[in-house]
Structures are given as C-alpha cells and as structure tokens.
Amino acid sequence: MIKFQLNGKQTEFNGDPSTPLLWVIRDEKKLTGTKYGCGIAQCGACTVHLNGSTLRSCVTPISEVSGKEVTTIEGLLSSKVSAEATAVQRAWVAIDVPQCGYCQSGQVMSAVALLKANSNPTDQDIDNAMAGNICRCATYQRIRQGIHDAAGTLTASASSNVKGETA
C-alpha cells in the first residue's frame, strides 16, 4: 500500500505500484482536472505539484510519491500557494486565456509554481518555466500576459500588506 498526501488529505493506493500518478489521480481519486496529453512528459497537461514543485504525473510511478504531498488543480486554492493560485486564476479569467481549455490546468499549475519561485518573472523567465506546457490552441500570448498580470496583483497585494492595509 502506498500512502501519500493528496490536496492536504492523507490517502492511499493499493494497486500496481508502477501505475503513473496521473491515472491514480484520475481513475482512483476521481480528480479529473489533471489531464492526459502525451504520456511521455512532453506536453505538461498532467502537471501537478509535488511538495510545491511541478511534476509530470504521467511519467511518475505512484511508488515515487509515497509519503509526499501532491497538489492537483482541485486543491490549489487551499494549498500553500493559494495566493499565487488566486492571482493566476483571476488573471486567466480577466483576459480569457483558455480556448479549448484542455491544457489549462497544466498551464495554471506551472504558472503558479513559477510565481511562487519568482514573484516578478521576465518574458524569458516565463518562456523557460512554461516551455514544457504545450497549448495546441496557441494561447501563449495570453498565458504570458496572464502571468505578468498575476505577478502585478501579487506585488500590489504584498506592498499593501506591508503598509498594513487590507489587500
């Protein structure tokens, strides 16, 4: 039996330990926000957070997450990166980033992890951090803009917190 934390709750998996985390999340845990896109870590649609960093769940055997903390798109707003998640999702909605939307869970997971590590990324930082996430609709221009906008709101809220105001 493999035990791990999923979106803040202890959970377990009793099946084949080589099962990719993606299929455990989707088939067993019924959390379908995390998508299948390629199965070989080329497209990023399956991106989740493992202890706060991005992870391609399609190539990660469930045995490797034993005792660790996995966050999916469904658990993002109640996780340690909730401020970044809120900022990213608001920015995404404000400028209508998604088209078909299938890759966007993965895009959001990568964008949130980027902002957690780098609160004011340049275009180059964004290109580097998001290079593993394919969007066949090519919403990339709005993804880049969304990350900049989210960074802006995070910076504004951080500075207002310093001043003792409510963000």
Binding site: R26, L31, T32, G33, T34, K35, Y36, T72, I73, E74, L76, L77, Q89, W92, V93, D96, V97, P98, C100, G101, Y102, Q104, S105, V108
Partner: peptide
C-alpha cells in the same frame, strides 16, 4: 468574456475523457 473560461481555469470543465 467567455462563458466557459472560469471552469477551464480551475479544473472543473469536463471533457469526454473525464
């Protein structure tokens, strides 16, 4: 704004595979 944006941002949008 598009009617389907929010659910395509928070993982709620359901596709056939889901």
């Amino acid at each position: 704004p598009k009617v389907d944006t929010k659910v395509k941002t928070n993982g709620e949008a359901k596709f056939t595979l889901d």
